[in-house]
C-alpha cells in the first residue's frame, strides 16, 4: 500500500487494499480446500487424515468416470474445432468493413447465445431435440455436438475478432497488389497473422464446452453423461473426496488452458 517514500498518492483509497486482498484470498480459499481434501486419506471433506492418492485411484478406476471423461473430451474437441472454424470465417466476414446490408443481423445472431440465459436455451433445445429424436429415432452425440458448437461460437469469435481488428489491413492489400489471389492472400498473410487469435479462440471454446453442465443436462440422451453432468448427479448422493479428485483434475486442465490463453492474448497486444 502507501509507501512513505512516495508520499501522498491519489491512487490510494483507505481500506480498499484490505478488501481487495481479502477478496483475492476468498476467491481461492474454497478451491484450495477442495483441492487439499482430494488428497485426504479418509472420507471426510473437513477433517484431515493424512495424504493419499486413494480418491484419484478410485476415480480413474471408475468406469463411469472414464466413460464421462472421454465423452467430455470428445465433445469439447469436436465442438471447439467446428465452432472455431465457423467463428474464424464469421470474424473474417464481419470485421474491417464498411456497414454492409445485414451486418447487424449477423452480429446479433453470433452473440445471441451470450444474451439468453443458459437454462432457457437448454429447455428450448430439449423441446426441439426431443421432437427430432422421436421423429428420426436417432440419438447419437450429434445433438450435444451441435448444441455445444452453437454456444461456443461467440466465445471463439471474440479473440479472433479482437485479433483481426488490430491487424493492419494494408498488409492484405499489399499481398493482393503483389499478385496474390484472395485465397493465397488468406493463406500466406491473413492466416499466419491471425493465428494466435484462432488458437486463443479454440482454447476458450474448448474450456467453455468442457465446463458446460446446464445445456448438456437437458440435451443428452440416456447414457451420455459428461464429466460435469456425472458430478452433478453424484452430488445427490453421499459426497466423497472422489468428487474433489475429479474437480481438481478439471480445475487443473482449465487453469492450464486459461494460462496459455492469457499468455497468447497478452503477447499479441
Amino acid at each position: 500500500m502507501a509507501d512513505a517514500r512516495k508520499g501522498y498518492s491519489v491512487r490510494t483509497l483507505p481500506g480498499f487494499a484490505i478488501v481487495a486482498l481479502f477478496t483475492l484470498v476468498a476467491l481461492y480459499a474454497p478451491i484450495a480446500i477442495l483441492v487439499v481434501f482430494s488428497f485426504n486419506e479418509g472420507t471426510s471433506l473437513a477433517i484431515w487424515e493424512g495424504f493419499s492418492l486413494r480418491w484419484y485411484r478410485q476415480a480413474i478406476a471408475n468406469e463411469a468416470v472414464q466413460d464421462a471423461a472421454l465423452r467430455s473430451l470428445f465433445l469439447a474437441l469436436s465442438a471447439s474445432f467446428v465452432a472455431t472454424t465457423a467463428a474464424t470465417m464469421a470474424a473474417l466476414a464481419t470485421t474491417r468493413t464498411r456497414r454492409f446490408p445485414g451486418r447487424t443481423i449477423i452480429y446479433a445472431l453470433i452473440n445471441q447465445p451470450l444474451m439468453v440465459p443458459e437454462i432457457v436455451t437448454a429447455v428450448a433445445l430439449l423441446i426441439v431435440f426431443a421432437w427430432i429424436k422421436v421423429w428420426t429415432g436417432h440419438t447419437s452425440m450429434i445433438y450435444l455436438i451441435v448444441a455445444h458448437t452453437a454456444f461456443c461460437i461467440p466465445f471463439a469469435y471474440l479473440p479472433i475478432r479482437a485479433r483481426l481488428e488490430t491487424m493492419d489491413m494494408s498488409l492484405e492489400i499489399a499481398a493482393r497488389d503483389l499478385y496474390a489471389s484472395r485465397w493465397l492472400t488468406f493463406r500466406r498473410v491473413t492466416l499466419p497473422l491471425m493465428w494466435p487469435g484462432i488458437v486463443a479462440g479454440l482454447m476458450l471454446a474448448f474450456v467453455i464446452s468442457l465446463d458446460d453442465v446446464v445445456i448438456t443436462e437437458f440435451v443428452k440422451s440416456a447414457g451420455q453423461e459428461t464429466l460435469p453432468t456425472y458430478m452433478l448427479g453424484q452430488l445427490r448422493r453421499v459426497v466423497t473426496p472422489e468428487v474433489n479428485a475429479i474437480s481438481t483434475a478439471i480445475l487443473l486442465a482449465g487453469a492450464i488452458l486459461v494460462s496459455l490463453f492469457f499468455r497468447l492474448t497478452n503477447r499479441q497486444s
Binding site: L171, A174, A175, D177, Y179, A180, V189, P192
Partner: peptide, 20 residues
C-alpha cells in the same frame, strides 16, 4: 481487373511489410 491481375505495384505510405 482485381489488383493481383494488374502489372502495377505499390509502395505504401506505412510500407505494409509482412511482419511474419
Amino acid at each position: 481487373l482485381p489488383p493481383n491481375q494488374r502489372p502495377v505495384n505499390t509502395v505504401f505510405q506505412n510500407y505494409a511489410l509482412f511482419p511474419h
